[in-house]
Design a binder for these strands. Sequence first.
DNA 1: TTTAATTCCGATAACCTTGCCGGGAACGTT
DNA 2: AACGTTCCCGGCAAGGTTATCGGAATTAAA
Lengths: 365, 365
Amino acid sequence: MPGTLSVIPGNYSGLPVIFTEAMEKQKTIKDIAQALGISTSTVSRALRDAWDVKAETKKAVKALAEKFNYEPNRLAISLLKRQTHTIGVIIPNLDYVLATMVKGIDEVALEAGYTVMVCQSDESYGREIVNTNRLLDSLVDGFIFSVSSETKVYEHIKKIQAKKKPLVQFDRVVNAIKTPIVRLDNIEGGYQATKHLIEQGYKKIAILAGPENLNISNKRMEGFEKALREHDIKLNKHFSIHCDFNQQYAYEATRELLNTRNRPDAIFTISDRMAIGAMLAIKEKKLNMPMDIGLVGFNNEPVTNLVTPSISSVEMFAFEIGKAAAKRFLEVLHSEEDLSDQEIVIKPKMVVRESSRRIPLKDIS
Amino acid sequence: MPGTLSVIPGNYSGLPVIFTEAMEKQKTIKDIAQALGISTSTVSRALRDAWDVKAETKKAVKALAEKFNYEPNRLAISLLKRQTHTIGVIIPNLDYVLATMVKGIDEVALEAGYTVMVCQSDESYGREIVNTNRLLDSLVDGFIFSVSSETKVYEHIKKIQAKKKPLVQFDRVVNAIKTPIVRLDNIEGGYQATKHLIEQGYKKIAILAGPENLNISNKRMEGFEKALREHDIKLNKHFSIHCDFNQQYAYEATRELLNTRNRPDAIFTISDRMAIGAMLAIKEKKLNMPMDIGLVGFNNEPVTNLVTPSISSVEMFAFEIGKAAAKRFLEVLHSEEDLSDQEIVIKPKMVVRESSRRIPLKDIS
DNA sequence: TTTAATTCCGATAACCTTGCCGGGAACGTT
DNA sequence: AACGTTCCCGGCAAGGTTATCGGAATTAAA
């Protein structure tokens, strides 16, 4: 009763609660049916404009639904239909690149009427498992996945497949699991960066890569090696360094690298954050960039354009990758076809800045 | 039947499908009950270790549940209990600060057994409404909210309250809605930044603020004015500039500002991204920082420490704010108390860097 | 021997919605 | 008059789980 003083069960505050219109319990089709003296089935059909219900009845039902502020209970429908219109997104963190990708996913999902549950594993294998299980029994309709750098065992991902949930991998993918994939052409990215350095006259090029089980890192390294081979530069194994995927480690690794007798004259890092770390070490050594040493990062984050000197980097179109991943997910969800052997591969683009431009632009033409 | 060749309905691929153990449909308590010749009620109680079921029966039930790989259907439970263990998080974007806050929210939520649905409105009022409604009928248990800069009408937020869903505002809050709040002490932040500039000898200080309806912007401005008043510096209204919350606009505004006859000798921007924009304009004018002009940003994003000169900024402890918001949300959810007039206010901390340090450190002591 | 307490379990309703089936009424066709 | 159609609606089951109630069987107390 609107405006009536009353005490609701579960209210232990001791205070009486005033029921107002807005506070009343959510109405259901049952309420509408009761008020109109018809059955719930008819109400349900009327609301969905079924052909077999009189126009007059429809009007009455819809009017009352409006008045009651009726909204269907999605949980009940989800339970019945066995789908929740929810996509689980598992990502290792929320740095610039991933956040941009999530933005892309979000955009497409929203458009298609899906809601996204984002869980970040914080690069931790354990949390990735917890998150996966949590989403799995929250009954998401499927997953868009990017593995953490710590993950080496994939049982939790196989579990998704065992439950026949659609699954798309993006960005940091693992090939041991057969799924549709949306990713950058990382070999090409590494190749472009390295080739650029060679063309600028650098001869002793080092690479700062990530953990050894990280696919994207290995692929970029592959491109790096390919470029060296093509230009007949011998691979120096001391110049291939694996370190953790962050600024601090890159800084330390670079410091060490610059202290060796035969130090490199250029460094390619597989992320911009690592490039920043390298830059700090280079500045500390008072080396001139790009003359004494060249530097190329990866991701083309805005920060690369703000530091001095600005850092060359490889644009990876994160937003596009996110959108493509979501689109591919929806395709998997709605089509009967098996897309699990298909990859969507985005081409990267080298962006040259001060940190690696020895030859002025005018001298090239 | 495991291993049996069969055709499942809805399989239009033309190929027969091999049923394996892993692919079988999810078992329910009904299946367990049937297999054991007991009722579902007993299975349900046994699984939850109720006192009124024989130890022997419990053991049998649990063993079979294990073997069947049983997992309760959360949807059914949610429908029954009217709670989903899901928190809706509405944010205007996923930049560094918000992403860090989301990380904090995520951390606490995960710990407490809640899953987070993050929706970014992209600073758009319309999308904020869509997202709110979407989450509202996805039946999240409540909301942790940060309004977009475009939002001036709050009906969609009131709708949350009308449905009696717990609601906590954080960071970008609006006072027109009475809810528990977790936020930075923005007045104090603006005050600290401005006071610091004054102490460094700057006399003509301008502020680059955000849109006029943005609470955090206005509060930081209030602190700015308070510091000026305290030091008997007259407010120059040409030095208080509202512009959009991004780098480009800040750049343009600063350019204009520096071209006036009586240009300021210091600029306080209410975000680091705006500080970057200002810095670019300053560099373009070939003015020396900090000698000709001082600059202080807000948020203390990592980039402030990477550019040259490094930019002073106000640390806002985003991760802590996120954690506090989630904790407060859980309190609201679980306690009967009305916390809607309570604010949790985090103190900011001024971080001095090159862009505003005219007086060397040694000269102070 | 009757009464009371204890131990264990099943039936039923409830949460909310949809889909299938069937059935009554009105109409038209042979 | 008998049959087939069309139109409109209600009943029931299903989706998976839990809470409440009551009842049967066993043991303990009077």
